[in-house]
Amino acid sequence: MSYEKVEVYSPRSLAEALEILSQKKEHIKPVAGGTDVMVMLKDGVVKEKELLNLSYISELSYIKEKESRILIGAATKYREIRRSPIINAYAPILIEAVRQIGSPQIQNLGTIGGNLGTASPAGDSIPPLYVLNARVKLQKIGTSREVQIDKFFLGPRKTVKEPDELITEISVDKMEPGSYYFFEKLGLRSANAISIVSAAGIINLENKTVKYLRLSLGAVAPTVIRATDAEEEAKGKELSEDLIDRIAKLASEATKPISDIRGTAEYRKKATYGIVYEALYRIFKGYGKKIEYGFEKTS
C-alpha cells in the first residue's frame, strides 16, 4: 500500500482509539512513533488501508511506580524512558538497551509499545523486558487482559494481540538492589543498527554465589528467548570462569538462529557465547554495572 492510498485516523483519546479499532479491526494498523511503520509504508509492505495514529493520545505516555512494579504507558517514547528517574533508579537495564536502540532521532520518536507491536526478534527493548518479567496490557472496549512477555510473541512480527486490541501498558519488576545487569548488542554501527545478536542479563550474587541469573537473547530465534538452562546451571553456584563458560555454552545451545543478510546462523551461535561470556566475565572481575537505588524518589 503506497502512502497516497492510506487513510489515517488521529483520535485524541484512548476511548476514541479503541472505538475505531473495534470497528476496523484487522483493516487498520496502529502507529505510534512511526519509526517502523513509515519504513514499511515506503517499502510497500503495509497491507492495511488505514492507519491509527496514536501520537496525540497523551494518556498513553507515562512512567509510574506501583509497589514492586513499574508501569509504562505504551506510547512512552524511548527519550522519556531514558530520562525517567524511576527507570534510572529501578530498571537501569532498560536504559542500557534504549541507549543502543537507535540515534537521538529514533529515541525522540520511537515508543516501547511500538517495539512490542512490531514484534521483531531483534527489537532491542525486548530482551530487557524478558529479564524484568514484563507483562503487556492489551485493551479493547470494555475489557483488558495482561499477558506475560514470553507468552506475547508467537514468531517474527506475530503476537497474541487480537485486531481489536491495543497495547496500552507494559509493566516490569523493579530490579533488586545489588543486582548486576547488562545489555550487549552486536550491530554494524553504534546508532541505528539492527541487532545481529543481543543479550540482556540480571545476576544477583550473595558473596560470590549466584542467587539467580536471568538471561535473555535477541535476534537468535523466532522470538526473543530466555536461556532457562543457563539460568538453572548458574543457580546456587559460585561464579567462576568455569561456570561462566558453562553458562555461555548453554546460552549458545538455546539459540535457534537463521542465516540472513546480517550474519549466518553459525556466527550467531558463536557470537551468543562470546557476548554472554564477556558480559559475565566483566561482572566476575568487578567491572560490571550494579544497581544501587542511588536516586532520590521523585514520584
Binding site: G33, M38, N53, Q105, N108, L109
Partner: peptide, 18 residues
C-alpha cells in the same frame, strides 16, 4: 526539530504534525 527535539522527518507522517 519537532517541538525542539531532533527527529528524522522521513519517519513522521504529516498527520502527526498538527
Amino acid at each position: 526539530l519537532l517541538d525542539g527535539q531532533v527527529v528524522t522527518s522521513c519517519l513522521v507522517m504529516i498527520s502527526q504534525v498538527d
